[in-house]
Nucleic acid binder design. Structure first.
Lengths: 200, 200
DNA sequence: CATTGCGGCTTACTTTGTAAAGGGCGCCGC
DNA sequence: GCGGCGCCCTTTACAAAGTAAGCCGCAATG
């Protein structure tokens, strides 16, 4: 009796969720269509009905997912506070799924992610910042780079990772840092950048 | 008559060079052992004699190669000039090989790349900068992120790229920028960050 | 001249992405 | 109730990739 119906009917959202789980848990390299199918209790080919362009579409969707953030501007009085909020939100979103960082840093923003970038620019401009385009760019660069450095230091395997668990052995030369140290370093660099952006 | 000797005897350096060429020209996805062998006029398996851990070792070597930079400190009087030199060198090295950016941003520095990072810290400390560790970290983050943004805007395919040529069609929403615009944006953000770092 | 070992080749097996076609199940109009 | 349709999922199949195992020629060495 082939062709059994899966318990819960499979959707784009469920696929992305499962894919993120696999990528974060075992590395991008281990994220294969068949494994994804297994995780969803489905044959690999079933995925193609929800993501017509196959793995390509999946990668795009993953990148879009971890780079889509929203910030409520009403909570920030100055453009500095607003910029901090965006930066922290961006960092948090990227750190949540280290397995797909390589995609997020490499693929151009699309869909909701692109909209988010534009929104960031508009909000910063509306809150009185002069060259908001430049600011958005510098902020995005700093956020992305910071997360990259953090992930590197955490000993995460990477896109061509050896398939080991995410908690790889710490680097021989430098101790793995704590979460507090990481946020502190991020905040200090962020403040430096904001100060620099203030003096047009 | 099998077992023909190749004209030039194959070495680790030649392998890396050819791999970079392929990755930059057709994307990381298209960098396969067999294709690499073809480019070197050799069978794929021959590569394993020079890179024992196979593709894994190749990826590590590529990441190391594009993140290894050197700066002559004698050309810089202030720590700001030194930091600028390091930042520009780092950016240039990464931009030279967009195909392996994902590796460079994801893999922890090893070998010569790690040495370069340490050297940067020592030089900055020696030139009078207080918290050089923090500064190196912020600078590296900014440089890596800036290049990531630049590559994204250039419409480069990415690690799971569709295999098209690097000169992909420009993003629909935003025009592809010129080299001048790119350096200008980089320099402005860099200056902002340096100003911020100056005020401890 | 026989030996040894480096360096490349051949073969073969496993895993992956994905095209193509098949099949069950629910829902529709009648 | 029922025949057919269409949606989702499965099956099957194939090309391409990573790489383990073992072969073999060539050159230097004794």
């Amino acid at each position: 009796m082939p062709a059994k119906r899966p318990p819960v009917p499979l959707s784009r959202e469920r696929i992305i969720e499962a894919a993120l789980h696999i990528a974060d848990g075992q590395g991008l390299r281990r994220l294969t269509m068949r494994r994804l199918g297994d995780a969803l209790q489905v044959e690999a080919m079933a995925i193609y009905h929800h993501l017509p362009r196959g793995k390509e579409a999946l990668m795009d969707a993953l990148a879009e997912h971890v780079t889509t953030v929203t910030v409520d501007p009403s909570g920030s009085a100055t453009w500095q506070e607003l910029a901090r909020a965006w930066a922290r939100a961006g960092r948090a979103a990227l750190l949540e799924h280290p397995g797909v960082l390589a995609l997020a840093l490499t693929k151009p923003p699309q869909g909701t992610a692109l909209i988010a970038v534009r929104e960031q620019g508009e909000q910063l401009a509306a809150s009185g910042l002069g060259d908001s385009t430049q600011a958005v760019r510098s902020l995005r660069a700093y956020v992305m780079g910071s997360v990259a450095v953090e992930i590197q230091r955490s000993g995460w395997a990477g896109p061509a990772g050896d398939g080991e668990e995410p908690g790889a052995p710490p680097l021989p030369g430098s101790r793995t840092e704590s979460e507090q140290e990481a946020v502190a370093a991020f905040e200090r660099g962020l403040e430096a950048l904001l100060r620099g952006l203030a003096e047009t």
